[in-house]
């Protein structure tokens, strides 16, 4: 996972300080801890994990919206410029972000077409006359009619709003799209439309995507590579088919088994005890060990590094490193 990617994260960490009480001492919260990732052009990297695992922070770091406290972010071979600098502003045209809530991302007082044209105005792309044509093209690309550009956000359905947000994100013809739960607020039948559209847009425009979601089924559908995060660290990463068919890390096993499937269940459900701990009170050793059904005493002490398995995926688990099959059978 190094070299050659459009976006490269190298041992990135982000530490917030949180006060538990007004006069209490500040606790460091490692939201992201030593994460290395690579997103090649035209490829999608899926990030899965539960709330508080650091996946959204990782997306913000990838866009330069937050500076990592350790490690480096490289975009197209150059180090990510500092937030707010002219170099970063220029780069922003090539990197775009799409959120979960399209209504919150759109200005309720402006028609859709004006908002889709905004990035063109900001980055001075095309002449004023060209821009209207370009907006129409963008609306068509996301499956909206150009005449719908005169509508206001509240006049569109949730799916149409998310399409409008995507049209705006695509306006500058970005090389990288960071999509943070982009379809989680949409109904199932509309989710499928947007997922297909993302795949088509990627194929047509060669966009690299960082797809952040808690929905394993959707991540498997869209991703070429997937990373499973827990408490700021990557637990397992590699080919989505392999990871979701045959997870090795005990956390991935539990996460995969927890996905409710419509129809007969393929594997027994592993119900974890307890809840993910507060990131401010990160356990020693492996962050997952207090909930892990196969943890041994070493897991309380040693922070496992990612190890490459014979099939090419990487797993951060002491039990898997000793014997992958043993870990799988024991769990």
């Amino acid at each position: 996972m190094s070299g050659g990617g459009l976006l490269e994260l190298d041992r990135v960490a982000r530490i917030y300080t949180a006060r538990r009480s007004l006069f209490g001492a500040a606790d460091p919260v490692r939201a992201v801890d030593c994460v290395s990732l690579s997103v090649p052009a035209s490829r999608t990297l899926g990030i899965v994990g539960e709330s508080g695992c650091g996946k959204s922070t990782l997306g913000r770091i990838a866009l330069g919206l937050e500076r990592p406290d350790a490690g480096s972010v490289t975009f197209d071979g150059a180090l990510m410029p500092k937030l707010g600098t002219p170099a970063w502003r220029r780069l922003r045209a090539r990197m775009q972000l799409v959120f979960q809530d399209p209504l919150g991302a759109l200005d309720p007082r402006l028609p859709i077409a004006t908002q889709v044209a905004e990035p063109l105005d900001i980055h001075r792309i095309g002449t004023r006359a060209d821009r209207a044509d370009r907006v129409a093209d963008l609306l068509r690309a996301v499956g909206l009619r150009p005449d719908q550009g005169t509508r206001y956000p509240h006049e569109l359905s949730g799916g149409q709003r998310q399409r409008a947000v995507l049209a705006r994100a695509l306006a500058t013809d970005p090389a990288l799209l960071v999509a943070d739960e982009p379809i989680s607020a949409l109904d199932v039948s509309i989710q499928a439309q947007v997922v297909n559209m993302l795949a088509d847009l990627q194929a047509a425009r060669g966009i690299a995507m960082l797809f952040i979601s808690h929905d394993l089924k959707v991540v498997r559908q869209v991703s070429h590579h997937v990373a499973v995060m827990y408490l700021g660290r990557i637990m397992e990463q590699g080919d989505p088919d392999a990871i979701f068919r045959d997870p090795i890390h005990p956390y991935t096993q539990a996460l995969v088994s927890a996905v409710p499937v419509a129809g007969p269940r393929r594997r027994p459900r592993i119900v974890l005890s307890g809840e993910p701990p507060n990131p401010a009170r990160r356990p020693s050793g492996c962050p997952f060990h207090p909930r892990c059904p196969v943890a041994v005493s070493d897991c309380q002490v040693i922070v496992p590094e990612l190890q490459t398995m014979p099939d090419g995926r990487q797993v951060a688990c002491l039990r898997a490193a000793i014997s992958p099959s043993a870990a799988r059978i024991a769990a």
Binding site: S189, A192, V195, D241, A262
Partner: peptide
Amino acid sequence: GLMSALPDMDGPRRRLAAIEGAV
């Protein structure tokens, strides 16, 4: 349509069969 619109957790990945239009 609803069932076909759901991505699968295993097996070959296929293009999702979206239900066109809206409610």
